[in-house]
Design a protein around this nucleic acid. Structure first.
Lengths: 335, 335
DNA sequence: CTGTTAGCGCCTTCAC
DNA sequence: GTGAAGGCGCTAACAG
């Protein structure tokens, strides 16, 4: 491994000078600058990132921890993050939270140990208290996605899950449905709870009774949606519409429904959540809630950079859902 | 930020001793060990990862670069990598290659600058020469996924793309299809080229002429599959089966076909590639090629660790496809 | 403009 | 068993 010392010797200057041309700091005569560059070139020198970071106490990178690498719109989210971070001239370093609060915290700590300049945390599991604790103990800025911590609204980017679910189900009701089934996500996660709450609120708001037999818990995955839907069918409580906590589960549910001889959307209308790329191409084309994850991530990164630069920051506005209405919803029996 | 020096003072010992108990190296009296631990605890000490790495010249982490964060089975792949790497007590650090050879190389270099102990590269774009150059210049072990470099079979984990495509299309032919259309991936990538080559080889092997009008280039995404399929339909060359370079494009194609009034699998049989989670739940259930990405990633990590530990390594066997036969293929007109 | 001198926080001989 | 001292590779005053 060739070091700055090697370069300095080859160019006949001191390490300090090499450092100067490397970082473009201070004044260096053009001729010696050239000499240094040439030496670096000839030796194939690459600065040692660790040494640089240690000396400057800044790794010029921001860390991102995701609750689970294999989440639904995870790829999109990651791409957006990479793009925005790199646009700022910094590096992105990503870590997986293994879908448990402990590991999510540990992941954050690891990034902190790595001296990331700032950290962005997309959590599905941490409690508000745990997040607060991080806010208080971390020596670098932290921005949280997907959770609302009222005491730190300037560092929280979140989505009005319940409201969006409420609107989706209200739409179904508006179309004449009253017997509406629901497949939830893992009920251990706030996100799934909130979407379920939105479903319940919509029913309640329209004077429709809540029936346990019309609700099944899924795992946000395709096969899970299939199983949950079979459960629903087995329960025997009739339904003319089905609201799912995400699009993937709708795909599974569609198969269960068609195996049961139900036609869609005639006999069963469908509503999803996420608006994943395939949604518009399913048959029937899926009505769903659009989740502006790229915008959310962009906001998160932008705010993070602000905090990093000690610019004034204001509370962030919650993101709201947007219904994408497509062919999967037909008029219901009460239209 | 509290350092080792703080801990040493608090515990009334030297930095060296703190270092010893931290790393479990050397002999330390139990009582002083306890004192040190207590001091670390009380101060909330966390070792500075950068300083550690710089001093030991090892970051205890392995780097992974992916051609594109938003690839199809990307999440699965990443999860597997994280799991295997962490099982070895190291950290995983991931980077995006932005789907260009230059950025893929740059990403590798960045990881090298970070002094990763080893690097795993999943590339879609780099040429063999570029990969060879990396093999020669990187100071740490490199293992490549998804590319076969004959001179370095012990560091290449790859899949027999062409053979798998050949088998899939041969199966269609065996079922009585002769007019078989094909939607390829981006033809700039070796993967797409190889799958197309497999398609052509299968046709040729069965004495069937190749028709350009039955081939359209897609982009591996759902909407791209839709567009490509419409193109195929517009071309006017009839086909009783459609082979797609990946499952996502099949989803798009299915919509185009049904919009054109084609029934599946009766009028058009379908075959995909990837066996993504939704494949078995589409209607008709999709026949596709299973790609053992987790096994491939596991192999890659395992081999990487071997190289790291200077254990003897042998050439890696290529991975082969496995057909998942489901309802999307009906008997063809020549059955 | 450029070189010298101290660190950054930790590990690691080498003595005691 | 423990401490002192030097070094990992680079940056950052401070002098000239």
């Amino acid at each position: 491994m060739i070091t700055m010392l090697d370069v300095s010797r080859r160019a006949g200057v001191s390490k300090a000078t090499v450092s100067r041309v490397l970082n473009g700091t201070g004044q260096v005569k053009q001729s010696t600058r050239d000499a240094v560059f040439r030496a670096m070139e000839e030796l194939g020198y690459r600065p040692n990132f660790l040494a640089q970071s240690l000396a400057t106490r800044s790794s010029n990178s921001i860390g991102l921890v995701l609750s689970n690498f294999d989440g639904p719109y995870f790829g999109k989210l990651l791409r957006q993050a990479a793009k925005d971070v790199e646009a700022s001239g910094k590096h992105l370093i990503v870590t997986d939270g293994h879908d448990t609060p402990e590991d999510e915290i540990e992941a954050v700590r690891l990034l902190a140990d790595r001296r990331c300049d700032a950290i962005v945390l997309y959590t599905r599991h941490m409690s508000e208290a745990q997040i607060m604790r991080l806010f208080e103990t971390l020596p670098m800025p932290l921005v949280v996605i997907n959770r609302d911590v009222p005491q730190a609204r300037d560092r929280c980017v979140f989505f009005e899950q319940q409201q969006a679910a409420f609107e989706a189900v209200s739409y179904l009701i508006g179309q004449g449905h009253r017997e509406i089934a629901c497949i939830t996500g893992p009920l251990g996660t706030p996100t799934a709870q909130q979407r379920l709450a939105g479903y319940r609120a919509a029913l309640a708001g329209h004077g429709i009774d809540y029936h346990e037999a019309r609700v099944a818990e899924g795992d946000n995955k395709v096969p899970g949606g299939y199983e949950a839907c079979r459960q629903l069918l087995a329960n025997g409580a009739p339904f003319s519409a089905l609201f799912c906590s995400n699009d993937d589960m709708v795909i599974g549910a569609m198969r269960a429904l068609s195996e049961a001889g139900r036609t869609m959307p005639e006999q069963v209308s469908l509503f999803g959540f996420d608006d994943q790329p395939a949604a518009a191409f399913l048959q029937p084309a899926l009505s769903t809630v659009y989740l502006p994850i790229d915008a959310m991530m962009e906001t998160a990164i932008r705010q993070t950079l602000r905090l990093l630069n000690r610019q004034p920051v204001a509370a962030l506005a919650p993101f709201t859902g947007q219904l994408r209405l497509r062919g999967s919803v037909a008029r219901g029996p009460f239209a």
